[in-house]
Design a binder for these strands. Sequence first.
DNA 1: GTGCTTGCAAAATATTTGCAATGGC
DNA 2: GCCATTGCAAATATTTTGCAAGCAC
Lengths: 151, 151
Amino acid sequence: MSLYTTSSLKAELNERGWRLTPQRETILQVFQNLPKGNHLSAEDLYNELQTDGERISLSTIYRTLKLMARMGILRELELAEGHKHYEINQPYPYYHHHLICVRCNKTIEFKSDSILKIGTKTAQKEGYHLLDCQLSIHAICPTCQRSLMPA
Amino acid sequence: MSLYTTSSLKAELNERGWRLTPQRETILQVFQNLPKGNHLSAEDLYNELQTDGERISLSTIYRTLKLMARMGILRELELAEGHKHYEINQPYPYYHHHLICVRCNKTIEFKSDSILKIGTKTAQKEGYHLLDCQLSIHAICPTCQRSLMPA
DNA sequence: GTGCTTGCAAAATATTTGCAATGGC
DNA sequence: GCCATTGCAAATATTTTGCAAGCAC
């Protein structure tokens, strides 16, 4: 199921005075072919492309990721790893959320209709166009509660 | 209203084999005296301390912020600015959340009991000890919707 | 006294930017 | 042809780390 075709991507870019380049098309491809629930960092994407024999510079990747996040094409995830991850932004959002242990970084993903409802309503009330909503729960996991280690 | 006294902080540190140092006490002071709703980055805290004539190195600040976040004393905020912010973690949590424009970074804060309930329940179900929960809504604000600028 | 903690400088990590060349429109 | 975009290298920003000296326990 492809959300964007070459021409719909081009249309959306041109509307803002931007251009469709092979690099942008390739990057979007990768995200559209990514198994549901997967997400890539800039570095991940770079390696992925290298493997496929595509030669796109890291700068372009960073620029494209930011651009597509701002256009609402990609969803920017703030996980615990210290750098951003990206995934395709579903048109009918059914976002997952994160329960993160602040000591060992163990992360559990979960879904919630109620959160989506709250997000939708809040954005609507302020006149914002919703792209994404994520609940991050920071907590201490059972294992780390038992341990007195610094970790 | 001081949540931690010198001795309760010391107790909590010693329990894990850590030590109470003047630096740690001073840093906690700053956060406890911070007006409600304010938050500081590592750099902010460093400058704040310089102004007050305190001489604490940036390394120590980074180390202390991370330590206190992992202890649950401080709450780590992931705002849109590319670096972390910290604020005191209220014992009876009434967390605020963020509606963020991905183009201009304009951010609206809001509160929600339902989110807190969802966070509490989710953490509980997995046996996690809740420290903090934050909903981040990424969206496009009315102004940016109207503008075709690259932002 | 032991070993956690600090400050400093250097390193590591993640991301951005200046600029000439390229190539969409 | 105009100017957005790319790739490269250098710059920036943020955070981490090695190590000797200091200090909490």
